[in-house]
Design a protein around this nucleic acid. Structure first.
Lengths: 147, 147
DNA sequence: TAAATATAGTGCGATTTCGAATCAATATAG
DNA sequence: CTATATTGATTCGAAATCGCACTATATTTA
């Protein structure tokens, strides 16, 4: 295979776009009406990396424009799943905190997804998926740094 | 690692969503104003799998709702990059054909992307990317069939 | 072959996404 | 210290996305 043939990368990005469509749709049909993948992803992120993050930090983590994140966060706040408090270290900024309701919502969502995920897990070698994940992480980091 | 721990899959879908954001943004900043990743992807698809496809076939290939594809195709048609003719085999349907202008546009877009892609290619082992692509293809097929 | 059901595509309306402009607060420079 | 530039967040408007309902054609069934 030609090292300089870019078609493998076009294909890769194409597959990624399709899987994103599929996984997003599957997730959203399991969430209550009015909740979208970005809502779930943000709650999840706040658990994984700890809450108290600023909107800008979160938007960078997902590589979405900050104005998009404003919209997503306001949806979460309207439903009482997060609280946005002033950032004590920077008067321009805010910190995003999970509420009990937000933690509960995230937990319930994960439960609803568990069957879906274990079903997939039964059909794939975990090591293979883990290796793929590692490669994608490296790629994501490179794309981010060389944007 | 626990075979039934779903966190690897959550992480995987998360990385996929981020890479999709990054690659889409990088692509779109290289396209002329008013053209988006879906436009490019459809033109590319029509070259790869041959044109004359129906809108429904194309929407399934990308796993987007058909109403979304209607919108994308009408954009391409308005710019004269595709033609939509009646499907001789089905009066309800249409066939999508590339115009010369569409082929040229796709070629120029690929040229503009080549530096971006070869830059990435220089930093990753092609075999590793190819393996990742294979796994993602399998995953996409599984997700599609078990939707 | 008529009636019932399913399928391909589109129009419409609600929501999401996101770039540009704006505002307030902070950091930097002179 | 003041003036200037930068940064975090929001508002606003335009466009994309997509579910629902609808039309026209095809397919199935009785």
């Amino acid at each position: 295979m030609d090292k300089n043939n870019p078609s493998t990368y076009f294909e890769l990005f194409n597959e990624i776009a399709i899987i994103q469509q599929l996984s997003r749709a599957s997730l959203e049909e399991k969430l209550p009406n009015g909740f979208l993948q970005p809502h779930f992803a943000v709650l999840n992120h706040l658990i994984r990396v700890h809450d108290g993050r600023t909107p800008l930090e979160i938007s960078k983590a997902f590589q979405v424009p900050k104005t998009t994140m404003t919209h997503t966060l306001s949806g979460l706040e309207k439903h009482g799943l997060i609280e946005m408090l002033p950032n004590p270290k920077d008067g321009r900024s805010k910190c995003v905190w999970l509420t009990d309701k937000g933690r509960a919502f995230r937990g319930e969502s994960i439960e609803k997804l568990e069957d879906y995920i274990t079903d997939i897990a039964e059909h794939f070698d975990l090591q293979k998926i883990a290796t793929t994940l590692e490669t994608l992480k490296e790629l994501r980091i490179y794309l981010d740094e060389n944007r």
